[in-house]
């Protein structure tokens, strides 16, 4: 089916609201997921999985290096899919994998929300601005003929969203099933410079320190009546705030470095993490990459 389809102008509204609907849909997911958890104080005397603990799963027991490599390959495979149908299949598989890794849904949905704004832009713009080809079906609303709603553009936007959501859902099984230091040690084994992974660990730790610090400073300003507005005064206050954050962090930098030296730091972080390859590791990697291959083949032979 192609050509121009004349529809009532009333159709414009729901179609333009679509991005908004998708965005608020993501928000709702978070709301639902929030109810799902009701954890009490965790038992910190056992090794933690990064962020929140889940029960052990095949993904948890997978050697980090194989996991990283397989997921990375899979991620690039997924973003190369050219048809919404295969992308949808990939998303379903990703959901299945997510379930298998026994991670709270809330975390994955939060990731989706992180992209929601950016992706809504595509959903809004692509149908309206995609170049009209001869085979496209375009909806034209009443007499406004300069504004055509290109269904191929909508297809494209949906494809992008499906690909993005799939990769985002893969991130949790990839990252949350091992402590961050182990994941990073795996990366280092795979050839990422060790210095980089060490720095990531330090940054990750101090991120929380500065988040708390920034939050306290923000409260300090708020209780003295600070309210953001579009004004020079706000700009100045925020400039001071950011400047103070930097000054404090520079000072802390020096102290942290001194503390590391004082405890015997000599330029590298001692981290003897040993890896143990099992046949199952190879099997899981083969399965995942095989799945990726299958998706690509389906995608290639897909018509229309």
């Amino acid at each position: 089916m192609s050509g121009t389809l004349q529809v009532s102008i009333l159709w414009l509204l729901p179609l333009l609201l679509l991005p908004l609907a998708v965005y608020s849909g993501f928000r709702m997911l978070i709301g639902i997921a929030r109810k799902e958890q009701g954890e009490g104080e965790r038992d910190w005397s056992v090794p933690q999985l990064e962020f929140e603990g889940g029960e052990s799963s095949p993904v948890h027991r997978w050697d980090v290096r194989f996991k990283l490599a397989s997921f990375l390959i899979l991620a690039f495979v997924i973003v190369s899919l050219q048809h919404p149908q295969t992308a949808l299949a990939a998303l379903m598989l990703a959901l299945l994998g997510y379930r298998l890794a026994a991670i709270p849904w809330r975390r994955g949905f939060k990731r989706l929300l992180g992209m929601a704004g950016f992706l809504s832009m595509f959903l809004l713009m692509l149908p309206l601005t995609a170049v009209r080809h001869s085979g496209d079906l375009v909806l034209v609303f009443g007499s406004i003929d300069w504004l055509g709603f290109n269904l191929r553009g909508l297809d494209l936007a949906i494809l992008i969203i499906l690909r993005a959501a799939t990769v985002a859902l893969l991130m949790e099984p990839l990252l949350a099933t091992a402590p961050l230091p182990v994941t990073l040690a795996g990366l280092a084994r795979m050839g990422v410079p060790r210095r980089l992974t060490e720095l990531l660990l330090i940054s990750h730790r101090y991120l929380y320190v500065f988040l708390h610090e920034a939050r306290r400073m923000q409260i300090g300003m708020e209780v003295r009546g600070f309210r953001k507005s579009t004004s020079l005064a706000t700009l100045r206050s925020v400039g001071n705030y950011v400047g103070m954050l930097f000054v404090r962090s520079f000072e802390r930098t020096e102290r942290v470095h001194a503390a590391m030296l004082a405890r015997g730091y000599q330029g590298y972080w001692p981290q003897p993490i040993s890896f143990n390859v099992m046949p199952a590791d190879y099997l899981k990697a083969a399965a995942l990459i095989g799945l990726g291959l299958l998706l690509v083949i389906c995608d290639q032979f897909m018509v229309g």
């Binding site: 210095r195 940054s203 320190v209 706000t234």
Partner: peptide, 28 residues
């Protein structure tokens, strides 16, 4: 990475966290 003296690497890491936090600030 090469251009950064080895001694300063942890410092860059700590500063990165501060820049990260600053980049979360929203302005109307």
């Amino acid at each position: 990475l090469r251009r950064t003296p080895a001694d300063d690497l942890p410092k860059v890491a700590v500063l990165t966290s501060a820049f990260f936090v600053a980049s979360l600030i929203h302005l109307p």
